Computed example of a mutant assay.
Amino acid sequence: MPDSPALQALDARRSVPALQLGAPGPDPETLLRMLASAVRVPDHGKMVPYRFLKIDGDARHSLGAFLAERSRARDPQASDAQVEKDRMRFSHAPLIITVIARPRPNPKVPEQEQLMTVGCVCFALMQAAQALGFGAQWLTAWMAFDPAVQAHLGLAEGERIAGFIHIGTPKLLPPERERPDPATLLQDWEG
């Protein structure tokens, strides 16, 4: 069976480590085009349980300084190398889109469904970035779950970080890695 270009694009998807992402990043028009694709996800009840926070330019370094302070506050015994790693986390890729989950109570749309929608947005944004010639990596780490970081980024009550999507021009393409064989994951249900 011949592959379609859409399947070839899905099959070519791979994360490019944030350390390997450099300038240029997408311009504002290109970013909006990526986001237009990213929001075309299953969304039961049209809840739109997500929003985006753009971190670029000097804001990346400002956030890094905060993370270094927070890293030391969380663990006074943290090594200087660990604190420096936290300081530099957002300084490599020229653009980071923080995907923020904002699930809301709805009797017909459980929170889990809303969170799956948000996960789809993260994945679709990575696909859109790659389709336009950029590399991307979806990261979380401790800062995605830390209340002080969430407050620093202006998250409202009930919001949480689903992922930091680092986007930029790949300095190198990562090698393909082993993928699971879908045939070993598929079962027939026989009732």
Rank of each mutant, 00 (worst) to 15 (best):
M1C: 05
M1A: 07
P2N: 05
S4F: 13
A6F: 13
A6C: 09
L7Q: 08
Q8T: 12
D11V: 08
A12I: 07
R14N: 06
S15H: 00
V16P: 00
P17F: 02
L19V: 14
L21C: 11
G22D: 09
G25P: 08
P26T: 05
P26I: 09
D27M: 15
P28T: 14
P28S: 13
E29L: 14
E29K: 14
M34P: 01
L35D: 03
A36N: 05
A38T: 08
V41S: 01
V41L: 00
P42C: 04
P42R: 08
D43P: 09
G45L: 05
K46D: 06
K46E: 02
M47W: 07
R51S: 07
F52Y: 03
K54P: 02
D58A: 15
H61I: 11
H61Y: 07
S62Q: 09
L63Q: 01
G64I: 02
L67C: 14
L67G: 08
E69R: 15
R70Q: 14
S71W: 00
R72A: 14
R74Q: 13
Q77W: 05
A81H: 12
D86N: 12
R87P: 03
R89H: 02
R89G: 05
F90N: 01
S91V: 03
A93L: 09
P94T: 05
L95W: 02
L95H: 00
I96Q: 03
I97V: 14
T98G: 03
V99F: 04
A101N: 03
R102E: 04
P103M: 10
P103A: 04
P103E: 01
R104G: 03
R104N: 05
N106R: 13
N106C: 12
N106F: 11
N106P: 02
P107Q: 10
P107K: 14
V109T: 09
V109G: 06
E113K: 14
E113N: 13
Q114A: 12
M116V: 15
V118H: 02
V118M: 08
G119A: 10
V121F: 13
V121I: 13
C122A: 15
L125V: 10
Q127E: 06
A128P: 06
A128D: 06
A129L: 06
A129Y: 01
Q130M: 10
Q130I: 03
A131F: 07
A131L: 12
L132Q: 12
F134L: 13
G135K: 00
G135A: 06
A136L: 12
Q137A: 11
L139S: 02
M143I: 00
A144P: 08
F145M: 13
F145R: 12
D146S: 10
A148E: 13
Q150D: 07
A151R: 13
A151G: 11
L155E: 00
L155P: 07
G158A: 10
E159D: 07
R160C: 13
R160V: 07
I161G: 01
A162C: 11
A162Y: 00
I165F: 08
H166V: 11
H166K: 10
I167P: 03
I167F: 10
I167D: 04
G168H: 01
P170Y: 04
K171W: 08
L172A: 13
L172E: 11
L172K: 11
P174D: 13
E176W: 09
E176P: 09
R177Y: 09
R179W: 06
R179I: 09
P180D: 00
P180Y: 01
D181F: 04
D181E: 01
A183D: 03
L186D: 00
Q187K: 04
D188C: 09
E190N: 11
